[in-house]
């Protein structure tokens, strides 16, 4: 009997656990599994839909969208680090009108689940308008409000680093949509918990974290920063322990669901994040080095759960 995994044991007991072992819920919307490609690493899904059926994902968070089109930062925008990378893309995106007129209709052909709409803004008015417009779109399940992008001077950073400014964004967005509002937090703060609490009190339905950590590299040959914009967002497996710690802190301080991200690269990482208190997880940089990363993680989850005696993901709660 010691050789049997949990699924086998369940089958012997006449239970059926296979089908919904991975199922979780995020702000009242069921997810087939908790694996969500993170915004900025998955575009609008088209490049990945050419490789595999992306309907196997829980959902995905599409490229951060702003009211107006943005060219983003000058190149180089990418620098490699030990077990990670820095990016300074600068929220390049085609703007809300294009996303609604072109990307969402195109997405219908290859993705049939509610999608997570990631939005950014540089003023409360912009957040309100972008969220109002995207909130009306039938395909959009959740609004993930980025108040944390570290790349744009005077932009998202200022909202996400101050509890009252963060709460103000949440209150503004809350008024314009009935869709679940998930606030994506920056880790570049002294007290992540106070910001998460402020967002919850202002009416957020969920918290996602962490966005990238502000970092930089210098090219020894040129003696200049590798990134043209000097600094950028550090991500990848190297940040996982920091992300896990913050997910743990925040999920123990708020009663709304937490989406954990930051260096998640394997099924084991997913389980660890969920044990820290995450209701779902996002996979970011790993999609860039392995375009099949999310598919591999989803496929590896059942046997990884077997190894650790986990029958259903939904049974994992905070430590």
């Amino acid at each position: 009997m010691g050789e049997l995994n949990f699924a086998d044991k369940a089958r012997m007991n006449g239970e059926t656990v296979e089908r919904d072992r991975l199922a979780v819920e995020l702000c009242g919307i069921p997810l087939e599994n908790p694996v969500i490609p993170a915004s900025g690493t998955f575009g609008y899904g088209a490049e990945f839909a050419e490789l595999y059926d992306i309907n196997i994902l829980g959902t995905f968070s599409f490229k951060g969208t702003t009211l107006e089109p943005r060219y983003g930062n000058p190149v180089p925008r990418i620098a490699e680090c030990t077990a990670g990378m820095i990016n300074a893309v600068g929220l390049q995106n085609p703007g809300i009108s294009h996303v609604i007129a072109e990307e969402l209709p195109r997405m219908k052909a290859y993705f049939h689940k509610p999608v997570m709409a990631n939005v950014s803004g540089f003023s409360l008015e912009e957040y309100a308008e972008t969220c109002r417009l995207l909130g009306k779109e039938e395909q959009v399940g959740w609004l993930e409000v980025n108040i944390s992008c570290p790349n744009v001077h005077g932009g998202g950073m200022s909202f996400g680093t101050d509890p009252s400014a963060a709460a103000e964004v949440v209150r503004t967005v809350r008024k314009v949509t009935d869709k679940p509002v998930i606030v994506k937090l920056t880790p570049n703060v002294t007290d992540i918990v106070s910001i998460a609490r402020a967002c919850e009190e202002a009416g957020a339905d969920g918290i996602s974290l962490i966005n990238t950590l502000l970092g930089m590299r210098i090219d020894l040959k040129t003696r200049k920063p590798v990134i043209k914009n000097v600094m950028g967002g550090f991500s990848g497996p190297a940040v996982f322990p920091v992300a896990l710690r913050m997910v743990y802190q925040v999920s123990h301080a708020v009663s709304i669901p937490v989406v954990g991200m930051g260096g998640v690269s394997s099924a084991e990482d997913v389980l660890e994040m969920m044990m820290a208190g995450a209701s779902a997880i996002e996979v970011g940089s790993q999609n860039l080095v392995d375009p099949f990363a999310c598919k591999k993680i989803i496929e590896a989850l059942p046997e990884t759960m077997d190894r650790f005696g986990i029958r259903r993901l939904s049974e994992l709660s905070a430590l």
Partner: peptide, 14 residues
Amino acid sequence: ERMGCGFGACMGCS
């Protein structure tokens, strides 16, 4: 150009 993914997903080389 310095690239992130190499297949059009990250906008790192735009």
